[in-house]
Design a protein around this nucleic acid. Sequence first.
DNA 1: CTCTTGCACACATAGAC
DNA 2: GTCTACATGTGCAAGAG
Length: 334
Amino acid sequence: MTGPTRQRDERERRQWTGDERGDESTTDEAEQEDTGDEIDPEEFDEEDLVRTADGELMHEPTGLIVEEDHVDRGPEWRAFNHSERQSKSRVGAPVTETMHDKGLTTTIDWKDKDAYGRSLSSEKRSQMHRLRKWQERIRTKDAGERNLQFALSEIDRMASALGVPRSVREVASVIYRRALKEDLIRGRSIEGVATATLYAACRKEGIPRSLEEISEVSRVERKEIGRTYRYVSQELGLEMKPVDPKQYVPRFSSELELSEEVKSKANEIIETTAEQGLLSGKSPTGFAAAAIYAASLLCNEKKTQREVADVAQVTEVTIRNRYQEQIEAMGIHG
DNA sequence: CTCTTGCACACATAGAC
DNA sequence: GTCTACATGTGCAAGAG
């Protein structure tokens, strides 16, 4: 080691930490302005511009909104004490988009009092009790439905991006429904669980995608997917078998444009070395990558470690280590 | 130059405690 | 919870072709 200094923090980590998922810090203060689209009204002929009923400036021929006026300047009245505020205010509870009813539902109070603060008769009390129960049921059922709907659309989106068959999406949504039923989502992000179930479904269907590949189409980082996956598969007793490295061989090989000969050679290497226990505890992708690399050398279709590492999304180091072990176990020399 | 090999160290995870 | 062992990843240096 001759390096005098060791700069460990220069490692570049692209983590968009401020992504929108699970952002609970939204303030309920009125958003004062929206500097979103900047369309210059000068670009249009003034006679084509009309003011709509909503106060937006619209370009008539195209229907393009040139200027929106949605600045909230607050109440147009001023109030100086509580009673003035009470009498002048025309507004109710703030609305939110995060609930299907925008938070405008009437809720039934838990107190057994009427609007004047009087106690209710026992008959009314039990009626209220029933109503309350049903309201809660309907509300939570609805929330669950929306949760499911969002999760399923995410699964669909990611599955398309990965190019996995429909059967995988079916399996993923079945697993997700089970997770939802078992209340495993609580305390976890919907996206996280959705991604984890997709990962599990890929493995179950025998067309595994690595955590790395999955995380590329998900908004959830690899670590969390892995964590959530382990939790879900344990809780649901999914009994996942370890991934067979051979399942990666066809895909990686064709990406590298390798012949059938190399594929079968790689499979042979995997089988033989796995029998000798070399696979235990190793990453299946790395194992497959090393076998493919070795096979490519043996068949005179040499790919570099770098090339194989790229498609398998492991590092050259891992390929080196596995490959050394494999050729030793196979009794092949260089 | 590229590719391979080897090494030290950082980091994550699983299992023991 | 912490500690430890292990695998993988990063970064570097040096040799081969």
